[in-house]
């Protein structure tokens, strides 16, 4: 069970929250000009980051407010909680080491569906995930 710090209510159990998927996915400026593939990518294609991942959460049985959270998908460590609309805080983000290197070994296993998308878009969003990953993936 994750213990999540709601910005309004403080630490609460994960069961009080609702997951809202990847954060910072902008609505297309001109949806009518997109072709089917671009529209499908906006709707359904999300990063599958190994390491720090920005995601939206809703405190559904508490204050019913949305917020963003930076969570490590390997260790489940919550690195930052910040309001909707705010820029992603670059916590402990050293030079993004050409991103895909750390995700490559695992992303090959899921392979065929959309290799180019998950590969390219995670690049800026991956701090040195490998360095903090091994510390107990518990909770």
């Amino acid at each position: 069970m994750l213990l999540i710090s709601c910005p309004n209510c403080g630490s609460r159990d994960e069961t009080e929250f609702h997951y809202g998927g990847q954060a910072h996915v902008p609505y297309p400026e001109n949806p009518n000009e997109l072709d089917d593939r671009q529209w499908a990518e906006f709707l359904f294609y999300r990063d599958n980051t190994k390491g720090a991942f920005a995601e939206r959460w809703l405190h559904s049985t508490g204050c019913r407010q949305w917020f963003n959270m930076l969570r490590d998908t390997v260790t489940y460590e919550i690195q930052a909680v910040y309001p909707m609309g705010a820029a992603r805080p670059d916590k402990a983000a050293p030079a993004p080491e050409s991103g895909t290197a750390s995700t490559a070994p695992d992303s090959t296993t899921t392979g065929t569906a959309a290799p180019d998308i998950s590969g390219t878009s995670t690049a800026p969003a991956t701090p040195a995930a490998g360095t903090i990953a091994p510390e107990g993936a518990t909770k």
Partner: peptide, 10 residues
Amino acid sequence: ALNTEVGNIP
């Protein structure tokens, strides 16, 4: 007063 879960219900 707190908004929470008791017995798994809000």
